[in-house]
Nucleic acid binder design. Structure first.
Lengths: 234, 234
DNA sequence: CCAAAAGTGTTTCCGTTACACCCATGG
DNA sequence: CCATGGGTGTAACGGAAACACTTTTGG
């Protein structure tokens, strides 16, 4: 096999912040690391890029192994390339974040990997630069969710407006006006009224909506303030 | 030296789309490649990541070698990781884009590297996936320039409002209303009136402004429609 | 029939847009 | 003095924000 006359071949890792939403809080999936270095410490989901796969393949493989899910929304964030970020061997990590429906993952796979959901307020110490990655991912999620209809990825296929609102309130850690929120979301025409109502509430049942996937795809890159009022000050 | 029991060590390249603005058109800097494969074809500015440097070091090194400039604005775009993107050897490329004042670069360094400025309308065929990189960079530039005061990086330290307007018109390929543009820019309070006027015009001389670097730093991440009306439809 | 949460309507306000006039400069 | 381009002002419009009432449900 031909090679370039250049010797700096480097291990390439992929790390991923997996976000979930349990109905009231935003959470991230962390793993108790079972190999050296830092064995027993908490880390993000990750793995090495193999020779026969691109980053997308690797991301799907790694996410599938942990969650049992395919076709997860995930997006590249940044490459972490500090020379000494891994003490064992020079490794660069292409950091990603993923958004999943927290109720859809395979609990056995998660348990067998020693993975747990943590709220953002109660994160344990993380290995390497993983804390920095989480902070960046949250920042990016806030940025992107204000401009693109990305939040739906964190919800079940059918959801109510109050659920969606609670999600945005968790992302931005701010209360929203129910009436303006409703009008804003409905005006995007991204939601389809399923005709059903949610179960289990002790009060008025809310309408269950489903995402209009076709319009979602079409509008996704038409960036505009999806939720206005966010991101405009801080 | 310790190593992970994993064999997929990979060449890591850094490629960079260098944008410039000549007063009327947006341009990118391309290089006639002087080594195999694809020797003699046009490519983006790039190089390999060395063992003793992080991505930031490598970017600064590569940009300095070509332009003679330091402290250039550059930003990571995306990692291109296709298995066969380079025929010689598996190489992933962390793609960046840079914004420079086109009049400040070192012309001798550029010439000695066989580099030339091309307008976006007249790009030659590019090697590998570099064309895809350019398209993505332009898309990102348009996105970002609508939300953040990034355009100033393409202008000299002192510039006029008409110059700035022509820059945005070049970026978005759209005509703007002079009066609304002026009001919008002035309202950001990012510009300092230098008290000077530009030279060389045959008509009324325009006010030369300088960027208020302090406010620029502070406001940079406070994303909001820096230029409204863009990015809201397409 | 009451508490709690869901759904809908209206007014106010502010930023964006569209458009018109005056000023400076060189020829 | 005239053509060209630069600087400023204003009215109309539209979307966002603030705010109130009605409806449904279970207990």
């Amino acid at each position: 096999m031909k090679r370039y006359p250049h010797t700096s071949r480097i291990l390439v890792a992929l790390d991923c912040i997996v976000f979930g939403f349990d109905g009231s809080q935003l959470k991230v999936l962390l793993i108790k690391r079972n190999f050296a270095p830092e064995k027993g410490k908490w880390s993000l989901l990750g793995g090495f890029l193999d020779h026969d796969e691109d980053m997308n393949d690797a991301g799907n493989r790694i996410l599938y192994e942990l969650t049992g899910l395919k076709n997860i929304y995930f997006e590249e964030l940044k490459t972490f390339s500090g020379v000494n970020r891994d003490k064992v061997e020079r490794t660069i990590s292409v950091c990603h974040f993923a958004l999943i429906n927290i109720h859809a993952h395979n609990p056995d796979a998660v348990k067998s990997k020693n993975a747990y959901w943590y709220t953002l307020q109660s994160l344990p110490d993380l290995i390497f630069d993983h804390r920095e990655m989480v902070d960046l991912a949250l920042q990016k999620l806030r940025y992107k969710a204000a401009l693109h209809p990305i939040g739906f990825e964190l919800l079940p296929p059918q959801f109510t407006l109050p659920q969606l609102q609670k999600l945005y309130e968790a992302i931005y850690n701010e209360k929203l006006d129910r009436r303006n929120f409703s009008r804003k979301i409905i005006s995007t025409h991204l939601l389809i009224d399923t005709g059903q109502k949610n179960e289990g509430g002790q009060t008025k049942k809310a309408i269950l909506y489903a995402l209009d996937k076709h319009k979602y795809q079409k509008q996704f890159n038409a960036f505009h303030y999806f939720i206005s009022g966010f991101g405009t000050s801080a």
